[in-house]
Nucleic acid binder design. Structure first.
Lengths: 124, 124
DNA sequence: CTTGACTCTGACATTGATGTCAGCCTTTAT
DNA sequence: ATAAAGGCTGACATCAATGTCAGAGTCAAG
């Protein structure tokens, strides 16, 4: 199939499909006219790529285990668990940092509101 | 004072001080030789900028209320509360998204581990 | 007068997946 | 045959604060 059809079936833009290829995630054949020629199985591959991108993994990380995952169950691919765990640690650090900021924002909002309430009291 | 000294006193790089100026956050005078000439009060201004940057606000947002905040109490600056609240909403959305990813990662890690345990059982 | 430490401006790099455009070729439908 | 639709490559833009470099001017101490 051609790239436009694959894009339509996967919901991924033509631009992104070409990018995934550049990152080594998919390797379509070429027709005589130079057009990319995708196997129908590529739909599943792209769905898998989407899944890992949604977990926050980079195309580079995905490239590291995609071939294995497409052939086996995840549990068989030893590379993947460390990646998951590293990502989890990273995500949790980000959450903590955002929670810190959130707390600071709440404090400041409360401070502004109480100062205003005080001013209002003085005026009354 | 010159830019190097201000950088040292505030812990902000020379590069960033010039950037803040470009964004309209600080407007130093110029000496006859073209060197920036900062008032000692600018140390406080830069500390204030750092504070808001740490809350995740952009220089553009900070520019919108910095003058007011430097002259008055925050509560007096009506622009600031909506910005805080918008930022809070944004931060909370990000936290939620990260928590979603975190949950998915935990699920997949657990799945891999249980599949492996099963394989080990079969082998024994 | 020279050297080193500062300063100035302007510009490019960073990060990563995606959007978008230009210029050109191919296919399909009219 | 022509025009529209789609494909190809290559390139720049995005977002934002900061790092870093180049080339040039300034100042202070020796």
């Amino acid at each position: 199939m051609k790239i436009g059809q694959l894009a339509q079936e996967t919901g991924v833009s033509v631009r992104s499909l070409r990018y995934y290829e550049q990152q080594g995630l998919i390797s379509p054949l070429r027709q005589a006219n130079g057009y990319r020629d995708y196997s129908p199985l590529t739909v599943h591959t792209v769905d898998t790529i989407k899944l890992y991108l949604n977990l926050g993994l980079s195309t580079e990380q995905i490239a590291g285990f995609l071939t294995c995952v497409l052939r086996n169950k995840e549990a068989f691919c030893t590379e993947i668990l460390p990646i998951y765990e590293r990502k989890l640690t990273e995500i949790e650090a980000q959450i903590q940092q955002l929670n810190q900021i959130r707390g600071n924002l709440l404090d400041r909002i409360a401070a502004v509101q109480s100062e205003r309430a005080e001013e209002d009291t003085n005026k009354e």
